[in-house]
Nucleic acid binder design. Sequence first.
DNA 1: TTGAAAGCGCTAACAA
DNA 2: TTGTTAGCGCTTTCAA
Lengths: 360, 360
Amino acid sequence: MTPLPGSGTDPRPVSAMSRHRATMRDVAALAGVSLKTVSRVVNREPGVSATLVQRVEAAAAELDFRPNLGARSLRRADGKTATIGLVLQDLANPFSAALHRAVEDIARARGVAVLSGSVDETADRERELVTAFSSRRVDGLIIMPTGEDHGYLMLERRAGVAMVFVDRAPARLEADVVLADNEQGARDGVAHLIAHGHRRIAFLGDRSWIATEEQRYEGFLAAMAEAGLTVEPELVIKDLDTMDAADAAVVRLLGLPDPPTAIFAAQNLVTIGALRALRDAGMQHQVALVGFDDFELADLLQPAVTVVAQDPQEIGHRTAELLFARLDGDDSPWRVEVIATRLIERGSGELPPLRTPHLA
Amino acid sequence: MTPLPGSGTDPRPVSAMSRHRATMRDVAALAGVSLKTVSRVVNREPGVSATLVQRVEAAAAELDFRPNLGARSLRRADGKTATIGLVLQDLANPFSAALHRAVEDIARARGVAVLSGSVDETADRERELVTAFSSRRVDGLIIMPTGEDHGYLMLERRAGVAMVFVDRAPARLEADVVLADNEQGARDGVAHLIAHGHRRIAFLGDRSWIATEEQRYEGFLAAMAEAGLTVEPELVIKDLDTMDAADAAVVRLLGLPDPPTAIFAAQNLVTIGALRALRDAGMQHQVALVGFDDFELADLLQPAVTVVAQDPQEIGHRTAELLFARLDGDDSPWRVEVIATRLIERGSGELPPLRTPHLA
DNA sequence: TTGAAAGCGCTAACAA
DNA sequence: TTGTTAGCGCTTTCAA
């Protein structure tokens, strides 16, 4: 038996050892068995005598053997890499980060690793990421989609890659989706403002081609219609793609001859931008506000902020579970799973309408 | 030339096509060239005639060829997978999430994908994650370390895996590290409170075995010593591992016969827990507070919260750049890069000391 | 229960 | 400029 690099019988000092990673061959040689026996032990296949199992395991430990999953998936019949890809809009966004963590927890329990990346609402980057993951032969994809045509994913699907969409439905592609009940959530939030006496309610939205935004706007319209209220075009401001844009929009609203008495902010960052504007104008106790999506410290502000909360953890768990069900062979028809939202009353949404000067 | 699955000449409907991914062999056959020529074109090696380049590219596009990076790295001399592993404490934590995004941006520019995972301050999970990444043959590792012995990473290093630590230095291992200037930052924050007249300053810290916590505590001690102030043991509370624990600690402090006039909160969640307790006690305008690490909405609270801000984006960029420098062959001695912190005065840290009843 | 041989998709080394 | 052959580390298939 020849001494192997890294083995205890290797007389060279650690620093002089070659950059060698032990392979199954090395382990087999040290244990005095065949390659296939090592493979059997490593994969816990039955039918190896206890003696050999022990000898192989000792040799593997001795050499710090780490099976090469790339080589394994290359050879295996199912080609599985035990890796999935997660395409998010922005890893640093709290909603995406919470979702990411939830997916990780489910994946980890199955020994699956997660590749992830940010798309920043750019269809090209979504394709780039999918390609990058695809070249690494991920078993499945979880995608928060951007853009108007996801037909390109048919290729991946045909190649046997499982996929589930999250937060938004894909365009032109039938597929599994897990999303929050955006329309109902927005409807609840706006109805809450109406119930507190508001009639002039402003709608502030993110980029309107994002499906969730569209659905939240629909919810706003539905709640207004249900109450027999007309929607004033001057109070609907969309395409607010930054906090500052939302801030500026609220400044504009407050300067109207007949300003809104309440604001429905349809997204995270839009809500925060609106909060800043109200605070800077000293109007945070005069104008009611309900935001879509909860955020840290909403309860510590004055007034505390009433929100329609999504449950990113639940959404992430359900998404990952659906993906793994597909990987396990579930071939039932495409499913759309809708996760309920929850209205959290904290104060800002319960402010009464302010009588505006010219109405007084 | 036989029709290949997925090719335009394949008469079968899409739904009936086999789950086949085109390989270089398929592309070679369709283009009527050898395997090696396809390899050359795919890898943009020089010395292929324009005609063949075009023919190969057309065939590759036709078949939706995606090179298998796993197979490539298996065969290549350098064994590179164009994938790195990122070990964080918690993907959902805003600091970790911002760092993650910064690393992603640098990696993406180089065509490198990022595997990531959460450790939750558990040494075992750190090892598990490193093993999982190692089995997938990542080229490099970025680790936010936990635990008291990182000697086990010598194996990875010996196998040629580059590694850089972030946020904290590893234990018992010489290695590259990028971290915030925790001691100086804490010192600045506490000195700021002292400059505003405070003498009885409480220190609230996270789990004390975390290196950053230790350093921040050292900074606290240094600032106190520099001002000739004695540290009251009853005002030092460590090992606050949740927001609620921090909240409870502040409740306890406020109930002391001689409560502190100022609080230095050495970590993110600790700061928020302290804020809640002060607000619930109605003392947020009476007790000064400086927190370590900035957070969204700190400027919107009343009073707005003075913090020692880290720069997670800068930290992430520098870390990734250092890792890639190592992967590019930089073999200079281990480096410790310290990123400066910045004191942001917003109000809570500038409150004057409250005269306590028994001193009045 | 164990092992030998072939080959997954790709690139290195060499040949034409 | 293009192609042939071998083999990366592993699992499959088949034989002993």
